[in-house]
Design a protein around this nucleic acid. Structure first.
Lengths: 337, 337
DNA sequence: GGCACTGTTGCAAGCGCGTGCAAAACGAAC
DNA sequence: GTTCGTTTTGCACGCGCTTGCAACAGTGCC
């Protein structure tokens, strides 16, 4: 493959009749070039199809312009929505996104971060998994910024963006009670990530305060199939729940489908359901699901803003943490109170 | 941000008491290093947290290891599924994925390709949009490989991966007839991409051959909402269709939801529906949609294989094209014949 | 014409790495 | 110990770029 056919600044310089530095300066914002030489350089560059080699530029500037996105479960609606927003905003900020999928194999977040280091990424944004502390340290030591989204970690250095999961659990418990629900349940996956557990704890705490017990069941991943299984487990109980908070929308979709098509239940008349994420499918009329919206845009904005600002390198040992609010999107899966 | 804290081969060499070349060779497969020095280098590297700078390596080798993925509508189920598979397979092939989102703004595919050129990507895979011929030429001239997925283009050079859209249209028409449908319809978007139009033409041709007319309606994008609108338009016709082929699964989901919840129709008793893509939601019991599966894995395999093989540079003017079969996934949205 | 000042330009060094080449080290065979 | 053949090693150059520095115009003013 090594076919050295990319045109270099040297060739442009020769064609334009200027020095190589002049070419470089033409493509460096704020450098000192006369209008005349700039024009000649641009003409020559256009004619030859020249594009600055960002690998070499990154080498000199010690700033590659690359931001590494570390993700698993990309095919999941919430993840892909967040990914979309992040990439758009990164591009607007003049960065370029490098994508590392950690779906397969173990220790993969660490390996992903090593990949980021090898390409001298300016920063890494971690959407899934939690890196080993040693790797995190190495990243920070190398001047690489780190953003953790919905991964509640206590290491200093990275920016941590989280939601008010606990409070959300409380708000939805109130809604169930207002709707007249008597038996509440929380449908969770076995993943046990802090955000999921936060929703669970908040829901239980609030329900207890309101004088109701909560049945908790955990199974599998956070997907549709797990939701079906959870429905089968919960809806066959002696005391059947009539208000179920599902930890994610995908779980809720599976839960609702099983409740309707296998148990013949009518939603919201016989069963109230709520979810979390506000994926696109939640608004489809088959589900019409009341849920909490992930503030996808705000998350991306916060992350990119922090990166663009250089990540507050003046105070590197500070604990940087942002808490965003998940807004309740009221649809038709809970009776009006 | 230029904090030059990444550890370099020089430092490793000093610590290990060898020359810099020895370090370089240690990390170059197949280079000549004695077992002893290799060990010392690896120890020093480990201790210092050294990682080869792939920017510099790419500069030397004229091969960055970067593959650029050019995508729009990432948040769409089919796209994100394909993206997932591509990134996994690229990583397995030792490549790293650079992600360019072309959702916003115009001329964006061309700009994306320029980005790829700037980072000296070894190849670009285009999932959406069609680049200008001049840019394509520049890419190829620079030794960059190009893969077009589901974009039926006639330029020589790039690898083109397409499906048997036309034939699929034919197969599903037969199924509708077997199910006893009398009035067929094709629900399409206004996007007008070759793959969508291929399905339409194939469906119409086959239906005509079978002695049935096809009502065609086109509206909006290929999403859920457009499907709803198409249902409203079609199901209010004097002669209501009873067999509808939707160009994508998302359209089908919207169509089915509107048909059921707004028109009170029962599927498949009163209305048969088919889709295309086999997104995850198609298998959900709310839809249980008969559809054609995009051979996502095969697509990714073909693309990566072609890239790994160096893209047949010996015969650059050859027209490289692959046609894959979309398999019919039979579920419950069409009556059995 | 001489001067100081502002604005451009070229030179050359260096970013971190790979690699050809020749020197050095090693080992075996005499 | 000498010779020859085989690794192994270090040197030095170059990949394409940025940038400090010094040389170079150009301008306005005395």
């Amino acid at each position: 493959m090594p076919s050295k056919l990319f045109v270099s600044a040297q060739e442009v310089a020769e064609r334009a009749g200027v020095s190589r530095s002049a070419v470089s300066r033409t493509f460096t914002p704020g450098a000192s070039v006369s209008a005349d030489t700039r024009r000649r350089v641009l003409e020559a560059a256009e004619a030859l199809g020249y594009h600055v080699n960002h690998l070499a530029r990154g080498l000199m500037r010690n700033e590659s312009g690359i931001v590494c996105l570390i993700v698993s479960d990309v095919a999941t609606p919430y993840r892909s929505a967040l990914l979309r927003e992040l990439t758009i905003q990164l591009q607007n900020a003049g960065k370029v996104a490098m994508f590392v999928n950690t779906d397969r194999s173990d220790g993969s977040v660490d390996r992903a971060l090593q990949q980021a280091i090898r390409y001298r990424a300016d920063a890494s944004i971690i959407l899934s998994g939690l890196p080993d502390k040693s790797i995190t340290q190495l990243c920070l030591r190398s001047g690489q910024r780190l953003v953790l989204i919905n991964r509640d970690d206590d290491q200093p250095g990275p920016l941590k963006i989280n939601l008010d999961d606990y409070e959300s659990g409380g708000r939805i418990a109130t809604a169930f009670v207002r709707a007249g629900c008597k038996t509440l349940a929380f449908a969770n996956s076995e993943a046990g990530t802090p955000s999921l557990m936060g929703r669970e704890r908040g829901f239980i705490a609030a329900a207890t305060k309101l004088g109701l017990e909560v049945v908790v069941e955990r199974y599998g991943s956070t997907g549709y199939e797990a939701g079906r299984v959870l429905a089968q487990r919960m809806l066959t109980r002696a005391e059947r729940p009539d208000g179920v908070f599902c930890a994610t929308d995908l779980l809720a979709c599976g839960f609702m489908d099983a409740a309707r098509h296998q148990f013949g239940l009518s939603i919201p008349d016989q069963l109230c359901v709520a979810g979390f994420d506000d994926i696109e499918q939640a608004s489809w009329s088959s589900f019409n699901l009341t849920t909490f919206a992930q503030p996808v845009m705000a998350i991306a904005t916060q992350a990119v803003k922090w990166l663009a600002s250089g990540g507050h390198e003046d105070e590197p040992d500070q604990a940087h943490s942002v808490r965003l609010k998940a807004e309740l999107i009221w649809r038709g899966s809970i009776r009006k109170g």
